[in-house]
Computed example of a mutant assay.
Amino acid sequence: MSAAKPLIYDGLQCGHFDRAVFESLLKGGVRCVTVTLGFWENAIESMESITRWRALARANSDIVSIALNSGDIDRAVSEGKLALLLGFQNAVLFESRIAFVELFADMGVRVVQLTYNNQNDLGGSCYEEHDSGLARYGKEVIREMNACGMLVDLSHVGNRTTLDAVKHSQKPVAISHANADSLFPHKRNKTDDVLHALRDNGGVIGCATYRNITGNHYCASVDNWCEMVARTVDIAGIDHVGIGTDRSHNTTVKDLDWMRTGRWTRGPDYGAGSATNTGKAPPADWFKEPENLGLVSDGLARRGFNAAEVAKLTHGNWHRVYKAVFG
C-alpha cells in the first residue's frame, strides 16, 4: 500500500539551513525536524545561535515556525509549515550549572544530547576508550531535563552511559540519529541491549542515513535503507523506531573540522570517519536532495509495513515521544 501523502518527522539534521532547504524539506513531506544549534559552544555562544535561529525562523515565518510543544507541531502541520525543534548535540552549553537547563528550556531548546564525541562532566562518549557511565551531575541534568520538558538525546553517548541514562530518566529518551550496531558495526551505533532498554523506556531511535554509520549497502537505495529500518524494528519494536537522518546542509571543510575537533585538540580527528576516510561523507545515493525523504513512505510500504505502521515509523513514534516530553 502506498502512502499517498507523506508526513515525516526527522529526529535530527544539522548544517546551514536556508529557505531553499526549508522548501525542499516541505516538498518531500517533512513537517517537523530537530535542528542542530551547536556541538562545542559555551552558554553565550549557544544563546547567540538561538538568536540566529529565531531570526531565520522570523524571516521565513510563512513556511517555518519554532515549536515548543506537540501542539505547536500540530499547528505547523495544519498550516503546511515546517516545525523546527531547537536542539544541541552536547550539554556543554549548561556549563556545569544545573539552573541553566531550565534557562535554556525557557529560551526554546527542546532537545539536548548528553555528550558529543568526548567525555564531559555528565558522562562517557562513544569514542572514549573507557565509558565512565553517568556521572552524579549527569543524573541531576536528566532529572532537570525531565522536569523542564527537554528531550534527553543519547546518540553520541557511550553505551554504558546510555544505559545509565535510560535507567534514570522518568520520561522517554531518544537516540535521535544512529543505527543498530548489529546491522552496521560502528562505535557511533547502538548495541541490541541498548535498543531493548530504549524500547522498555518508551523511547525512539531515529535511523540515520549518514554513510559513515550506515554503510554503502543501506545507502544504495531507499529500499535498502528501508530494509535497515525493518531490521531495526525487529530489534526495538514497531513503536520505537523513526527517522533521524543526520543530514548535513551546506557544510564546508571548516564546519567539518569544528564538529570533529572543536577547541579540544591541535591534531586531526576523523569523527565517524577514519585516516583513510577523512572528508565529508557523500549522501546516501537515494538522498541527494532533502525532498528525497518523501520516498521513504512508499519504500516502507514495499517492505510490507501497513499504512498504520508506516505512519508510526515516519512521524507517529516521534510525535508520541514529543508529547510525552514536551506536552
Results as ranks from 00 to 15, higher is better:
5 K>I: 11
6 P>C: 08
7 L>I: 13
12 L>A: 04
13 Q>E: 12
18 D>G: 10
21 V>E: 08
22 F>W: 02
38 G>Y: 03
41 E>T: 00
47 M>C: 13
48 E>Y: 14
61 S>E: 12
67 A>Q: 04
68 L>R: 15
71 G>C: 05
76 A>F: 00
82 L>W: 02
84 L>Y: 06
85 L>S: 15
85 L>G: 15
88 F>K: 04
96 S>I: 02
97 R>C: 12
99 A>F: 13
100 F>H: 15
102 E>R: 15
108 G>R: 00
112 V>R: 07
117 N>Q: 09
129 E>F: 03
131 D>I: 09
135 A>N: 05
135 A>R: 13
135 A>P: 00
138 G>C: 09
143 R>E: 14
143 R>D: 11
143 R>V: 01
145 M>A: 05
151 L>W: 09
152 V>K: 07
154 L>Q: 09
154 L>D: 05
154 L>Y: 01
155 S>W: 05
162 T>A: 14
164 D>E: 04
164 D>K: 04
166 V>E: 00
167 K>H: 12
167 K>P: 00
169 S>W: 12
169 S>T: 06
174 A>T: 15
175 I>Y: 00
176 S>L: 06
182 S>A: 14
182 S>W: 13
184 F>T: 11
184 F>L: 10
185 P>M: 12
201 N>Q: 10
204 V>Q: 07
206 G>R: 07
207 C>V: 15
208 A>W: 00
211 R>V: 08
215 G>Y: 04
218 Y>H: 06
220 A>V: 01
228 M>S: 02
228 M>Q: 09
231 R>H: 03
236 A>D: 04
249 H>W: 11
254 K>L: 09
257 D>C: 02
257 D>S: 11
259 M>V: 15
261 T>N: 13
266 R>H: 13
268 P>H: 04
282 P>Y: 03
284 A>G: 13
284 A>I: 08
285 D>M: 06
288 K>L: 10
288 K>M: 05
292 N>I: 05
293 L>D: 02
296 V>E: 00
297 S>I: 01
297 S>V: 06
299 G>A: 10
301 A>V: 08
319 H>I: 06
323 K>G: 13
